[in-house]
Design a binder for these strands. Structure first.
Lengths: 299, 299
DNA sequence: TTTCGTTACGTTAGTCGTAAAGATT
DNA sequence: AATCTTTACGACTAACGTAACGAAA
């Protein structure tokens, strides 16, 4: 069985019509019939149940289609990528990152750039007010986000960072005098939340509505950038859970970061639209996998 | 480019020798040379740098190899699976599960069995004393385990269950009189740990050495089965963190389960040896993905 | 001179198109 | 009768082997 046959099989599985399949592939209808007949002979079972009026997949055919399609697509991607590399085209991959993450992900990004100097990696900033929009609009091909992500059209790839959340408070906030702070303390001050709509389950990570023991947490000012978060925290209007990278790179006089002893771990992963997965994306994912998530020991 | 060419390319990339490649594929040496020449012409770049003494991959060739191999393997698996399905062979997949999990994973397993009545799913029990051994020995092809798993030869697949850990204590244990218990309380009683060697990072999930605030936790009796865990807990020798499924299915008179308000979430995922991944395994993983992890609301 | 990759050339399997036949509604 | 799929058959492409050639140590 050769790729050409697989292409014919997959196209027919989509069209469910020998004539249209032949047209799409610019071959004669007879060829489609012959190719399918050959494959069925080799497999040893009918792949399509067909009359002169209807064509449909048999169970074995349906299973084969599901198993073949991913591999076939990968092979196409691979050869296409090699061809464009050969033509000296600098292939470009646009990766969406949150604010200061580029610094924190240096290990992973360096590994990727070293391994693949021929691929130009563009970094674009994405914001928590619209974590998935740029991916879906095609503005970036891959992005990072914190987990969990439950979007049926997006694939969640390898982790790139994993670190307990920290609590951002005003420098003169009452909590700064405490020996320890815990997630229970969140019940006493409002948390900011996203000014534009984002999935509620996703918002829960940084802006939970209840403490671990079930006490409600108020939602305070609506914000749309990290600067605004810092601003409302600095004035004491709110406290905010943030990821470790923020704590490391945004150090302001009016702001302090505390480590709740029971802070949940914030996990960042690569995500991309399942439908537009390419060899380029898989290459990036492989580098992320090999670099492993950046973890920071709890102090 | 057809599958035959890809096979020749991948074999040569492995052997780095035209003669041996020809032997392995039972073709003439000339054919190997012709096939590679054709592929290089189509891609537009040399894939191998070769003299009459040395053969090695060019950067483009190395990239192509990495990108092609997975897809090629998938296609082979797919056709093999279809052939054996056609021969009416009931293909069998052996899945390793911990004790009572089969009940808890009913949704996922039912989905798989309904979708694929032609695949016989064998369940074998695996134990926490040797979580990865059966996979590596081939006794099971896929297994569940709790995360994290950091084994370079194993692939971590989709989550199958996700639920906060619970604390197993003797029915007359002092902790049972408390209004709430937390992870900090673990510092006061020893936890059992595995009698046989398992990776320390993995043991940390159920048998952490420190509380969230950093106080040390003693390790008490070494145990090798869940029954033994229950036994040492019932006598008051130890308390034990366990996953939700245990709490649901092992209900003994001398045992009670408590919910630490800040218990970490226990995550179970499918894992399998990367090297022996098959279409069958991917089919199971797809079902797990679609069923989603079983989650239990915190009460 | 031996070892290996490449090139030349002839054979043949099998891909593909044309055209006609067979099935289904 | 109209609309599809299958079969028959011939043309031609390209896969492959044999054998000779060329480069490297």
């Amino acid at each position: 069985m050769e790729l050409r046959d697989i292409e014919i099989f997959l196209t027919l599985a989509e069209e469910l019509h020998f004539g249209r399949t032949a047209d799409r592939l610019h071959v004669s209808q007879a060829r489609v019939s012959q190719s399918i007949a050959k494959q069925e002979r080799q497999i040893g079972a009918r792949l399509f149940a067909r009359s002169s009026r209807r064509v449909e997949l048999t169970p074995i055919g349906a299973q084969l289609r599901a198993d073949l399609s991913a591999g076939y697509q990968q092979i196409l991607d691979a050869t296409r990528a090699a061809s464009s590399a050969a033509r000296g085209e600098v292939s470009t991959l646009t990766l969406g990152l949150y604010g200061p993450q580029a610094l924190d992900l240096a290990d992973f990004l360096d590994l990727f750039r070293n391994r693949h100097p021929e691929i130009r990696l563009h970094i674009r900033e994405v914001h928590f007010t619209d974590p998935f929009g740029p991916l879906r609009a095609g503005a970036v091909q891959v992005s990072t986000t914190w987990l969990p992500v439950r979007e049926p059209d997006l694939t969640v790839g390898p982790l790139v960072a994993s670190e307990p959340l920290v609590l951002m408070v005003a420098a003169d906030h009452p909590l700064t005098t405490r020996a320890t702070v815990g997630m229970e303390d969140l019940a006493d001050w409002p948390l900011p939340h996203s000014a534009s709509p984002v999935p509620e389950y996703w918002l829960q990570t940084l802006s939970p509505t209840h403490t671990p023991s079930g006490r409600p947490i108020r939602r305070g000012p609506a914000v749309s950038t990290f600067q605004e978060v810092a601003a409302v925290v600095a004035t004491g209007e709110a406290v905010s859970l943030v990821h470790g990278d923020a704590a490391r790179h945004y150090r302001w006089p009016g702001i302090r970061y505390l480590r709740p002893y029971d802070a949940p771990v914030g996990n960042w992963a690569l995500i991309w639209p399942t439908a537009t997965e390419t060899a380029l994306i898989r290459t990036l994912a492989r580098a992320a996998q090999d670099a492993g998530p950046r973890t920071t020991r709890t102090t």
